[in-house]
Design a protein around this nucleic acid. Structure first.
Lengths: 158, 158
DNA sequence: TTGATATATATAGCCAGGCTATGTATAGTT
DNA sequence: AACTATACATAGCCTGGCTATATATATCAA
């Protein structure tokens, strides 16, 4: 299909990215919370993946490692995340979501949803299904994109 | 529908926001460009809406007015945007996309799309339609959300 | 027309997130 | 034991983000 309508897919991707950016901004303002997107991204990864080493967390969240060091430092200070020693590798500690962090993330999701529901409340069940289907198509591809971006050098070497 | 399955819509919104955040991050890294999301958001608004006063630009882009002052200052310095005097109101100048700014934005969209196409290239035409339909449902609601957020005080007063 | 109020933007000053470059400590390898 | 590789931390810089506040222009009322 890319040979048939390459521009169609590309334009769609660009539009998706644009909408994603605006939605992210909207969510922050709507939630009425000063906490930034980076924090929620990090907590989300931890919630869905469990305890993770810092480097992997940076990769999954799509930031450089020193950036993640900063973010985690803030999260640790607020007790939303804790470092668990890795006995097998003393360079490493696993970053784990605390109960408090889990609760904070869930509350944020609830707040965001509550704030945006008025704008989405008129969707029909069919439209909701369409959005959900699209989301399920996009989500794994985003994850794949993050992974591929992190190890592009290997492809060149091979 | 909100009375039937309120949690469904809310959960979907929360998932959408989460995916949007990850996609935004992915796009920045994939584009290989240091320019930040805020800049692209601003240029996008200008491209779709034409010359706009700074305050309206801030509102549409979802940032506070002083933030937009900073962003516009950077764009002006790089020649991607220009200030056009408004003869009817000397407190104001209209912010207008320059040809250079238009080109830069288009190039960015092309770069992002090109970088992400490998992850989306296996979509069937039907799946592409699903995503496009979902996008068309979501986009106007994001815009509405931004507008409503900017003037919430009026509702309280009324 | 002048004084008071309202509006639009600019400025100041702070903090977090983002990066690259580089340091340090532990693992692995020969 | 020495060297290389890996994982993270630190330093230092820039931008984006905010609130609080100043300034300039418009608008309205007397």
């Amino acid at each position: 299909m890319s040979t048939d309508q390459p521009d169609t897919v590309r334009a769609l991707i660009a539009d998706l990215v644009q909408a994603g950016g605006r939605l992210t901004r909207l969510a922050r303002r709507a939630s009425g919370d000063a906490t930034t997107a980076a924090t929620w991204r990090t907590l989300s990864v931890l919630q869905s993946s469990g305890p993770t080493r810092l480097g992997e967390l940076a990769q999954a969240s799509g930031v450089a490692q020193p950036t993640m060091t900063k973010i985690v430092a803030g999260l640790v200070e607020r007790g939303e995340v804790e470092r668990v020693a890795d006995e097998a590798d003393h360079r490493v500690s696993l970053i784990a979501l605390t109960d408090a962090g889990d609760a904070v993330l869930n509350q944020w999701r609830a707040r965001v949803a509550e704030a945006l529901v008025p704008a989405f409340d008129d969707l029909t069940p069919g439209q909701i299904d369409t959005i959900r289907s699209a989301l399920e198509l996009i989500r794994p591809r985003i994850a794949r994109g993050h992974q591929e971006l992190t190890a592009p050098i290997r492809k060149v070497i091979d």
